[in-house]
Design a protein around this nucleic acid. Structure first.
Lengths: 339, 339
DNA sequence: ATGAAAGCGCTAACAG
DNA sequence: CTGTTAGCGCTTTCAT
């Protein structure tokens, strides 16, 4: 449209300096005279000049881009993480490359290969993917700076919550209310290598043990971490001779489904069966669901900052950030009536 | 780690051809002998060679990347759009650059400037931003291929629903149930240039007119398109002498808030006040909310495909895709008791 | 069908 | 503090 694009050379010529100086001046590098810097800046401004990213990248070897590898992009937890991550990198002027890879228990083929990423990004963030998956291990081990959220791997920076503790808190809350027959809506029956799930189960059983109880397998059903799954799971639990008086759902979305199942059976959460979840989903307050809140956007932010740090200093922050969770009591949990 | 990166030259040398041929062969360009192509492919494979994106971009002028400019990334509507868009471009091997710009009525400074985008992306998608904003007009007018979702602009491809019709359907449903005192929970009081809102209001009033009614301003409150806002709006409506027997909320999230307000007042949606929303939010079924569903992920997909088409053929698809909406009746709307 | 060669626009030593 | 000079690794005419 407007003829040839303007390049660093145009700026250099008009400002009466070399391209190298323009480059230094515009990037805020040291060893540039103040007056020179100003002049260059002014000329660049006037010409509406922008550094060509492709050229800059080719010459410098840096991409100014990081990849985000996530199973889902639209589900609440991931979308919220994403917004936290986005806020950090946007401020830093780093571009985000989004890789939605789908449910890893269904297929892992969309997890980008090392080849796909190398030379394309300066670093990557991996969100709540099973660390044990070979594809994920490749990502983490490829030498690029990495930061994790909702998962951990040895000597890789990460941000997550203490899932054992979160589940323990939720369960302990039910115990404190006098419940004994406590049901569990877990994620998936198949033994994936997904630690989060194991951790939450461990917290659940630990709380029971602490109260001198043991987990009756009859009181457990799988909710696949979805609303629909939670509903099915609760329905199963309700159709048994031994009904739980309270249920711990491993996620709020499954708890939503459980609430729905109760309503379908003419039962009311709280009054008839107590329900507690984990997450602090947007909608939980609306549904009056007791839950253990985790600071989701903050998890994204913290992990993003760890990666940014690494990108800037070149030093790998060795840290595993564990953020606090909080029990928020609402109407879905009440004292056991047999109490 | 493994010494120097391998380049196109390595492949060329080993395959015994020129770099030009390697380039053609690997990109599937014509005028390459079948045998040659195979040999090159094999060598590249063995060497685990990948075209350097930066170099390729610099040389070709194409980026293989498109920008997504969206007010929010974590809110349901946008996250769902994003997943639809992502599915299209990921299959096409196009990278997504995410620009979360925040609520445009609060600040527009994060909307990327033309400078920030030029040379950085081959095209862009703009999601449900007020088309009248100067910053948005800049984006759309900068000459890059553009595709819109949830908004329209003359001679720019887009995908959206008929907001007038959606609102009309919702309102007509209430009228059909015998309601007369119908409240409106609108988005924002300030007259932004955001067409969606105006359209939905127009559909609302049109339906009323069709029934020989007029919209009483006393029955309107603003819900700011959020759950909390919807709750406040409904509370206002309930505290007036003239209470509506039914309410049309311009979005499901506002309807959720309205439901919550009803509950707080000891009222039940449906039985006491009928509520209908627009969106088809994930949670609507859970809350038994009657709503006019729009195909959100599909909107993203359709618009993404329009952009892809444009990128590939260079021809601008002139079309404004209007996708159908559907009234889904649930328990939150019942016949007027005065009927 | 293939090769030679000229860039793409910038950065990074190295000199000065 | 500033300029010179090689590239970065590919794509793309233009020849052959």
């Amino acid at each position: 449209m407007t003829g040839r694009n303007i390049t660093i050379r145009d700026v250099a010529k008009i400002a009466g300096v070399s391209t190298a100086t323009v480059s230094r001046a515009l990037r805020g590098l040291p060893h540039v005279d103040g007056a020179t810097r100003d002049r260059v800046a002014r000329v660049a401004e006037e010409l509406d000049y922008v550094i060509s990213p492709s050229a800059s990248r080719l010459a410098s070897g840096r991409t100014g881009t990081i990849a985000i590898v996530t199973p889902y992009v639209s589900r609440w937890f991931f979308a919220t993480l994403l917004s936290g991550i986005d806020s950090v990198f946007q401020r830093a002027g780093v571009d985000l490359l989004l890789f939605g890879v789908g449910d890893p228990s269904v297929s892992t083929e969309r997890i980008p290969s090392e080849r796909r990423l190398r030379g394309r990004v300066d670093g990557l963030m991996v969100l709540a993917l099973p660390a044990a998956l070979p594809e994920v291990q490749n990502l983490v081990g490829m030498g690029l700076p990495v930061s994790l959220v909702g998962m951990t791997a040895s000597s890789v920076p990460s941000a997550s919550i203490d899932d054992v503790e979160a589940a323990r808190m939720a369960t302990q809350h039910l115990l404190n209310l006098g419940h004994v027959d406590i049901g569990l809506i877990a994620g998936d029956i198949s033994p994936t290598e997904f630690t989060m799930q194991d951790d939450r189960r461990r917290g659940f059983t630990a709380a029971l043990s602490g109260a001198g109880l043991t987990h009756d397998p009859v009181l457990e059903a799988s909710g696949h971490f979805t609303v629909a799954g939670g509903e099915r799971a609760m329905t199963v639990l309700l159709s048994q001779p031994k009904r739980p008086t309270a249920v711990f759902a491993m996620s709020d979305e499954m708890a939503f489904g459980a609430i729905r199942a109760l309503q379908r059976h003419g039962l009311r959460p709280g009054r008839d069966v107590s329900i507690v979840g984990v997450d602090g989903h947007d909608i939980s307050e609306l549904l009056d669901l007791t839950t253990v809140e985790q600071p989701v956007a903050e998890l994204g932010r913290v992990s993003a900052e760890a990666l940014l740090e690494q990108l800037r200093t070149g030093v790998k922050p060795f840290e595993t950030n564990v953020l606090p969770t909080e029990l928020v009591v609402r109407g879905s949990t009440v004292p056991s009536s047999t109490h």
